[in-house]
Design a protein around this nucleic acid. Sequence first.
DNA 1: GGTTATTTGTTCGTATGTATC
DNA 2: AGATACATACGAACAAATAAC
Lengths: 225, 225
Amino acid sequence: MTISKTNRLSLVEQVVSQIESLIESGEWEIGNQIPPEMDLIKQFDVSRNTLREAVRSLVYAGLLVTKQGKGTFVRSSSVLGVAIQRRIQQSGILETLEVRHALEREAAQLAAIRRDKDDIEQLRTHIATCHDAAEAKDSQAYEEADIQLHKAIIEASHNSLLIDLYEHMADSLHASIHQIVEMSSDANLHLNIHCSLVDAIIEQDEERAVETVNEYIAQFKKSLI
Amino acid sequence: MTISKTNRLSLVEQVVSQIESLIESGEWEIGNQIPPEMDLIKQFDVSRNTLREAVRSLVYAGLLVTKQGKGTFVRSSSVLGVAIQRRIQQSGILETLEVRHALEREAAQLAAIRRDKDDIEQLRTHIATCHDAAEAKDSQAYEEADIQLHKAIIEASHNSLLIDLYEHMADSLHASIHQIVEMSSDANLHLNIHCSLVDAIIEQDEERAVETVNEYIAQFKKSLI
DNA sequence: GGTTATTTGTTCGTATGTATC
DNA sequence: AGATACATACGAACAAATAAC
């Protein structure tokens, strides 16, 4: 006979769990307002304090936001984003860049193995947009296209955990990426390396893909010093 | 005149923030019981519900645990652990292993660059323990020593963000590591690769360190199929 | 511009369940 | 078994911010 650790989930935990499901399933869409406290009290059949403790928990975790006098809204569908964001804020740019290197290097290698037709199409589209932005010398558009290109590479890895980690990390990184791109000495060199990376992935050349990411990050690191 | 976004933090947020500080600063040590609700109500000068909402938030985030009839205890000092754990539970072993590869590869490379005297000492100690456990054919001791060795390698990277991510990931991974080690075909080969990795790091041979990690993970992947 | 309704923020009081001694 | 300490849960009330009329 095994002893169950927590025989009974507390009411608050039950409510939290149900709200999590509503968010993850998409029934409560991101950005939308959720029903007011009084409605949820009836729906879950709990007291106001109990409901509020549940909502508070999810607010702290980053899934919900409350605005006094307006209501409560869905902010995100994953707890990972906020947690990583909190942690990254305590770190320096160099540390963050190194973790980014870790994720991008792995993603590039996996992408070279697993990329499918859709991935290739995505990569070609985004590299073309990068090219256009570079010719037009529109640094803002280039930055945006660069971010999209990187996302496409990560997604070609077909590893959802990796994708999640990078995505949430990238959110916190756009500011520093901006800073780095600005400092970047040569826009053409930057673009060429990215072309080489995309080529390697399309040609399924694992080694070259990894080497290109290494080169690319090394350049970033240099510009930091 | 500047416009403040949200000039006023809610009382709950203020209490949460203060408790976070108490935990992060170590004033409330991990595992210890925190003062009972009534004491905290007086200390923070808030109502019971307000305090409870704050505590609940931190319980959900994984920093605290409450036990009815006993009290509330400090569980962890970082919100990252629980968030990653939740996410990893949704992923398969292969995906998790690939992310682990990403972190270990980067850590090994950085360790080869930055390892200091203390790191070398730690690495030598743990590899010796691995060796002893292998000779004694004590698989449980070997597994424990293996985990410690990997932690030491990561710490030699001197990147606190990387260390945090790996640490919290490793917590969720011990079960699957166990599974893999059990399946591992040849214990000696396993040990040899680790020796080679430690050597490479001590000799500051970046390339060999990275290659060794690649080899080591590739072996893991094989045993998964 | 002022009033009212809606919604979240905060407080107090009370009762109950659970573990320890 | 009883007493104590603690978390759990409910209900009622008022405050504060916002929106709508």
